[in-house]
Design a protein around this nucleic acid. Structure first.
Length: 440
RNA sequence: GGCUGUGUGGCAGAGUGGUUAUGCUGCGGUCUGCAAAACCGUUUACGCCGGUUCGAUUCCGACCACAGCCUCCA
């Protein structure tokens, strides 16, 4: 059973060879909790959830860490705007993020560290980088000295000159070199802050992930994931920090990045007003439908998100649930689902093959590795908040219709069918027996 | 401007140097009192232009279009 994954580092599909096959270590960059998570945020969560499930099915133990960023200037700004304490913002949106992820059937990572709870290790890490001569202190800031690290740019495939030629932002006075980035910065007034060897302040953006990986997973890990936009500068800087703190040339063995999503062909942006939160979407679509929609395109390709994709996903799920006859403890997984997943997580092909499975047991097990078919058939088809009629009324109407049909009063029978249809109830006459289900 | 990536039938989306996945939708049919479900059938696609080849959607080159990144955005 060979797993192949595309590694951003080599720009090639590689055979996955774990550092230790008894313990797989995976880290994914998590959310900054200052607002509702939008649909774009759901993509990496779902992609790496499938990876997590797949790895767990192959290896005895997988340790999955995903951080929560609760120190960030965006959070500070949100707190000021709403005139609320920072902790109430971060707590609120952390809870909402968890709810959203649960609704999408995204498994919780094994460890979900917060920046605020790990400042000590961040300070320790920065100190090591300073001690090793890869950083400097200036105007109350600690900065990473990019020119001191030869491998800088190896992930994003950029050289230092290229990066500078395109720089659009004025260089801060405390930087020796325009490409240098902040490890620690001073805090003033209401800013959250902690005492450190360099004064009262807070960590820069990139150091938290290096510190979390170091603390919870160690110096070297198997997989590091995130959105494509994080390749530069975030992940490039993480490599620099971790390698220089630990005097190690290695950090993450496989770098995996998911592509973006577009809204109905357009990019998602505030000015277009087409940013949609997971929460809003969940009002209209089941979490599994959204999940399937986000898996219907390969993770390294842009996905065109929209109503038609959601409708299509809903139809597929209805069909899959229809084929689900009973639950079971059997653990057979279809080879036609597993092997596409083993080939760089080809979810579209796996989903396509899923629809061809005839055996209900195998269907369920195979779907579960994708995080699908989480409910029973009955549960799925009666799940409908729009059902404006009680089960009792439905049953008595069915009975009335049966009698009408027996006496060939088809006009009345059709009236009842129509009435139920308006209440989102679909009737099916199978083998002389009438069953009902909610219209999805 | 630099770097990276994408371009397949109404839609979604695999894949491949030559035997034209698959799903959804639509349409037609079987079935049904009517429906639903199920099953059957169905419009032969790979951005544009060259090159390599007996043959390219698949390899190579140019072009076009679109997207992302270029210091804190998944």
């Amino acid at each position: 059973m060979n797993l192949k994954i595309y590694n951003t580092l080599s720009k090639e599909k590689e055979l996955f060879i774990p550092l230790d096959k008894n313990l797989i270590k995976m880290y994914v960059c998590g959310p900054t909790v200052y607002n509702y998570a939008h649909i774009g945020n759901a993509r990496p969560a779902i992609v790496f959830d499938v990876f997590f499930r797949l790895l767990k099915s192959i290896y005895p133990k997988v340790l999955y860490v995903r951080n929560i960023t609760d120190v960030d200037d965006k959070i500070n700004n949100a707190a000021k705007e709403l005139n609320e304490p920072i902790s109430s913002i971060t707590n609120k949106y952390t809870d909402i993020y968890h709810q959203d992820m649960d609704s999408l059937f995204v498994l919780r990572p094994d460890i979900e560290p917060k920046v605020t709870e790990n400042i000590e290790h961040i300070i320790l890490m920065i100190q090591k980088i300073l001690d090793n001569g890869y950083a400097y202190e200036n105007e109350k800031h600690v900065l990473f000295d990019v020119t001191s690290f030869n491998d800088y740019g190896k992930l994003s495939k950029r050289n230092k000159e290229e990066m500078l030629s395109g720089a659009r932002v004025e260089v801060a006075s405390y930087k020796k070199y325009p490409g240098d980035f902040v490890l620690w910065k001073p805090s003033e007034n209401d800013d959250p802050g902690w005492d450190s060897p360099w004064g009262y302040g807070r960590p820069g953006w990139h150091i938290e992930c290096s510190a979390m990986v170091d603390k919870f997973l160690g110096q070297e890990i198997d997989i590091h994931g995130g959105g494509q936009d994080l390749i530069f500068p975030h992940h490039e800087n993480e490599i620099a920090q971790s390698c220089c703190a630990n005097k190690n040339t290695k950090y993450a063995k496989y770098w995996i990045h998911n592509a973006y999503l577009k809204m109905e062909g357009e990019k998602m942006s505030k000015s277009l007003g087409n940013i949609i939160s997971i929460k809003e979407l969940l009002d209209n679509y089941d979490g599994e439908v959204i999940r399937l929609a986000l898996m219907s395109t390969h993770y390294r390709k842009p996905i065109n998100f929209g109503e038609s994709l959601l409708e299509q996903s809903k139809n597929i799920l209805n069909k899959l649930y229809k084929n689900l006859e009973y639950d079971s403890n059997d653990d057979t997984i279809s080879k036609d689902v597993l092997s596409p997943l083993l080939d760089d997580l080809n979810t579209p092909l796996a989903i396509s093959n899923l629809q061809k499975i005839k055996c209900s047991k195998t269907l369920l097990n195979s779907a579960n590795i994708l995080g699908l078919l989480n409910r029973s058939k009955d549960e799925w088809f009666s799940l409908n908040e729009n059902l404006s009629i009680s089960e009792e009324d439905i049953k008595s109407l069915i009975k009335e219709r049966d009698e009408a049909r027996k006496s060939s009063d088809f006009k009345r029978a059709d009236e009842i069918r129509e009435k139920l249809d308006k209440n989102n109830v679909v009737l099916e006459d199978v083998k002389g027996k009438t069953t009902w289900r909610a219209k999805k």
